[in-house]
């Protein structure tokens, strides 16, 4: 085993420690690096800005705790934006692990902004059968949601009185770490002409670009960076922006790792070839 090989195959636990430090240090000692916004996120922001006050926005919490650190900040930013613009928010949930997160986020944001449940926002809760639920909302919300999360009949909720189906909703934003936004595209946008935007984990973000090009999605908020951009747009710094320093440093570290690893690999291959040649 030559020196390059030894270098390449060091115990990975050393690398783990480096990564933990690269995240923790910038969190404790922030650098305050500037964040630039990108068109897909700006489009979501502009779409919400363009809605008339009083137009309901449907935010679908389609994620569970596994992706909460990534998607929670953007959900909060979107909620704050809608409530500040006096757009009533209807919150639905299409993954079973999600309703608890929706309860937590809506109640906290409402308290902080003095919003009233069932007037400024409403939490409809979780329903099974993703595509069936999305389709049913295009006919009548009451098909899948006879009652909200808190067991109140829909007709007794002031906010829902004038909401029958997608015709009465200005924008749907599906926030998810799965392909559920694709179902919103296929069943709410294509079938009922509903405008749809998506907030997704970075794992999925690159896969959603075809929908942006066709206009099937009006905009896309991707990962924690997307949340940070949104926080910048609404001028309310929170967890997203706070995390960006650490994000930048770890990305740099990983790029350095890739370069170092490949350089060592090339030298190792050369050294091997040379020793094989000399053996002959």
């Amino acid at each position: 085993m030559n020196i390059f090989e030894k270098f390449l195959y060091i115990d990975r636990r050393w690398i783990f420690i480096l990564v933990a430090l690269a995240v923790a240090v910038p969190l404790v000692f922030p650098l305050g690096l500037a964040v630039t916004t990108s068109p897909p996120v700006e489009n979501v922001y502009n779409e919400i800005e363009s809605l008339k006050p009083g137009t309901p926005v449907l935010i679908s919490v389609d994620y569970d705790p596994a992706t909460q650190p990534e998607l929670g900040p953007m959900t909060i930013a979107l909620l704050r934006h809608c409530i500040a613009r006096k757009l009533p928010v209807i919150v639905t949930v299409l993954v079973p692990g999600g309703p608890g997160l929706a309860v937590d986020i809506t109640s906290k944001v409402a308290e902080e902004m003095g919003a009233q449940r069932d007037v400024d926002y409403t939490l409809l809760g979780y329903k099974v059968g993703v595509s069936a639920v999305i389709l049913s909302l295009g006919q009548d919300f009451r098909i899948s949601y006879p009652r909200d999360y808190y067991n109140t009949p829909l007709d007794e909720i002031p906010l829902m009185k004038n909401v029958k189906n997608y015709n009465d909703v200005g924008l749907v934003v599906s926030i998810s770490g799965t392909v559920i936004p694709e179902y919103w595209v296929a069943y709410a946008h294509e079938r009922y002409g509903q405008k749809v935007a998506a907030g997704v984990t970075a794992v999925m973000a690159a896969d959603f670009y075809p929908y942006l090009q066709t206009g099937q999605l009006v905009g896309l908020v991707g990962g924690l960076k997307g949340a940070a951009e949104y926080e910048k747009l609404i001028d309310r710094p929170a967890d997203g922006l706070k995390g960006m320093d650490a994000q930048t440093i770890v990305h740099l570290l990983i790029v350095v790792f890739i370069i170092l690893g490949n350089v060592a690999y090339i030298f190792m291959r050369r050294a091997k070839k040379r020793s094989e040649a000399s053996a002959r």
């Binding site: 946008h189 294509e190 079938r191 009922y192 002409g193 099937q216």
Partner: peptide, 9 residues
């Protein structure tokens, strides 16, 4: 192209 157009109802 219109032969492939979809959306809005």
């Amino acid at each position: 192209a219109k032969l492939f157009e979809t959306g809005a109802g």
